[in-house]
Computed example of a mutant assay.
Amino acid sequence: MNLAPFLAVPLAAGLSAGLIVLLRPLLQRYALARPNARSSHTVPTPQGGGIAIVGAALIVTMLLAAIAGLGRDGPELPVLALAVLLLAGIGAVDDIRPLPASIRLAIQAGAVAAVVTTAQGRLLPDGLVWLEGPAALVAGLWFVNLVNFMDGLDWMTVAEFVPLTAFLAGLGIVGGYAAEPALVAGALLGGLLGFAPFNRPVARLFMGDVGSLPVGLIVAWLLFRLAAEGGLAAALILPLYPVADATLTLLWRLRRGEAIWQAHRSHFYQVATVNGASVPKVVARVFVLQSALAGIALVTLLWPSWPVTLGGLALAAGLVAGLLRQFAAPRRAAQGDGA
């Protein structure tokens, strides 16, 4: 039994919360998020809580990896850490003074490419290995950005990724997932839990790009490692809600001819609040859905047959589609929400 992910959770949670307490006065002074067209808040609120999440996750990962002797066989963990720090840095700058989209995208692509190049494991057979790198780069780049897009509501990122990281950390504890990514999952889970009390509705602190971009990269790497170990279906199921919400929203905005780089409130979870649903109820439904998806992912890992895999994917897609439909329902159809 691998106890490193279990130990990482309380250590990272305590460190994350402590860093937030120390940094919050500075964030209040220098990193206020003012309401805009995309915002769900109405008053200026400090952002940058992602510094604590990412910092705690990295420190605890490196500490416990050194103690357990993990990550010595290659550059995977050091490269991941450097790429995460790079995205955190560009996110911090963008939180204070927005950067051109081209610069952000180029730096993100470099960080994702470094992680893809050094990640252990392969998904495609030898004849198609040439396609894996470009495909992983595009998928990773999109995932980094969609996590940023989905971080537009109090507790939303917590609701999406606490079940996912808890599942992966738990899987690693019982030996069903490689030790290094399991440790990273536990450390990220702890960082999110330490941040959660400060982000609960109505939030006193936002994550900011300094957190959402590197969190997206870490989770993308965790899912790649899971897929490379034979859990492709589980890796597709676990993040299905944020992937579906962000991707469908992007496609529909493109179809309507909107400038997709501009702030908006078109995501399904945002539409739900516009239609009258309360923030706590929206994020609670996402949390329940993500927990259910973790359960379905577990079934596909325990019984890795084609019928179970296809059934799990279909059930997961149906649950996600059902929630998206609820969120998109007009107010008169959503009055039973109690909001």
Rank of each mutant, 00 (worst) to 15 (best):
L250T: 10
L250S: 10
L250M: 13
L250D: 09
L250R: 04
L250H: 06
L251Q: 08
L251W: 09
L251S: 09
W252V: 14
W252P: 11
W252M: 15
W252E: 15
R253Q: 06
R253M: 03
R253C: 03
L254P: 13
L254A: 14
L254H: 13
L254I: 14
R255G: 12
R255A: 14
R256I: 14
R256F: 12
R256P: 14
G257A: 10
G257P: 09
G257Y: 08
G257Q: 10
G257L: 11
G257M: 10
E258K: 12
E258H: 13
E258V: 10
A259C: 14
A259R: 13
A259W: 10
A259P: 11
A259N: 14
I260K: 02
I260S: 04
I260P: 00
I260G: 01
I260F: 06
W261H: 09
Q262E: 12
Q262S: 10
Q262M: 09
A263Q: 10
A263T: 04
A263I: 05
H264A: 04
R265T: 04
R265L: 02
R265W: 05
R265S: 06
S266K: 07
S266M: 08
H267T: 02
H267Y: 00
H267D: 01
F268I: 11
F268D: 12
F268P: 09
F268A: 15
F268K: 10
F268H: 12
Y269V: 00
Q270E: 08
Q270W: 05
Q270I: 02
V271A: 11
V271K: 09
V271L: 12
V271N: 07
A272N: 00
A272C: 05
T273Y: 05
V274Y: 12
V274G: 14
N275E: 03
N275F: 01
N275C: 01
N275Q: 04
N275S: 01
N275P: 00
N275M: 00
G276R: 07
G276P: 03
G276H: 05
G276I: 02
A277L: 12
A277H: 08
A277N: 07
S278E: 03
S278G: 13
P280C: 05
P280S: 05
P280W: 02
K281A: 13
K281N: 11
V282C: 03
V282Y: 01
